[in-house]
């Protein structure tokens, strides 16, 4: 079970507390989102979370600092997820170096297809950071094999043809796609994300995969209930309730 949360949301000061609260809820790993002004694949919850984080002063530096602070007190793996441009602007070498220093294990860049991965893959390998690639229901078989070939850490199966935070739609369709992916992804663990908001959703999909990732549902929960005093407990129990 992986949980996604946008770095700096609602404010950069909250992020280490939220990461620890997710950890206490039993996450096997955490995806920490690097906010971006133009997040193309995101539905409204994560779009708004990115906007709020940036307005509250979030940056690559605050995200990496939160990662390092979390890492100093927990062994739970941490993966950074976000769009390519802030990474390029930070400097690819510097980014992977600093991510390593902060104890980050992997990076997911949803707008970086494997064909363009050379723009970051050298430094990622040098610093021992996994580069996770994604597959989608539209990805043909031979391309899924290729993505499994180049991806490290795991393969991220986008459940639906749609944005984060939208419903799962036809269970049969998702199931058939994940079975196909299951057959083709042989080198990496296969984790499914997008549209999973409850233990029920998770139970249905993890029959076909090695695990699942929840993002928008947690963002909604934080957006509705977060305050520094009682927020952490609410996050912890929400995360606990996601495990099928």
């Amino acid at each position: 079970m992986g949980l996604f949360v946008t770095g700096g949301f609602p404010t950069p000061d909250d992020t280490p507390d939220i990461l620890r609260a997710i950890d206490r809820g039993g996450a096997d790993f955490i995806e920490l989102g690097m906010p971006f002004s133009d997040p193309l694949a995101e539905g409204l919850p994560i779009q708004h979370a990115s906007e709020r984080a940036l307005a509250a002063g979030a940056s690559m530096r605050t995200t990496l600092r939160a990662a390092a602070e979390f890492r100093s007190g927990s062994e739970t793996p941490l993966v950074l997820m976000g769009y390519l441009n802030p990474v390029l602007r930070y400097g690819v070498q510097a980014f992977f170096h600093d991510a390593r220093e902060a104890g980050v294990e992997g990076v997911i860049l949803p707008d970086l297809p494997p064909e363009e991965r050379e723009i970051v893959s050298g430094p990622a390998e040098r610093h021992g950071i996994d580069l996770v690639h994604l597959i989608a229901p539209t990805t043909p078989d031979e391309r899924i094999r290729m993505i499994d070939e180049v991806s490290t850490g795991f393969v991220y199966a986008v459940s639906i043809t749609g944005l984060t935070g939208t419903g799962l739609g036809s269970v049969d369709e998702v199931g058939a796609y994940l079975d196909r992916a299951r057959r083709l992804v042989t080198r990496n663990p296969l984790l499914v994300g997008f549209g999973i908001g409850s233990a029920d959703d998770a139970a249905r999909l993890t029959r076909h995969t090695d695990g699942f990732i929840v993002g928008s549902a947690l963002i909604r929960e934080i957006g509705a209930k977060w305050n520094p005093r009682t927020g952490p407990d609410a996050v912890t129990s929400f995360v606990r309730g996601l495990r099928p």
């Binding site: 694949a41 390519l84 707008d111 363009e116 994604l134 539209t138």
Partner: peptide, 20 residues
């Protein structure tokens, strides 16, 4: 052939769109 104009251009889109 990969759509690169020198260092520029390319295909930087979510995987859902790559096949399209």
């Amino acid at each position: 052939t990969a759509g690169h104009f020198g260092p520029y251009g390319g295909v930087f889109v979510p995987e859902i769109l790559v096949p399209a």
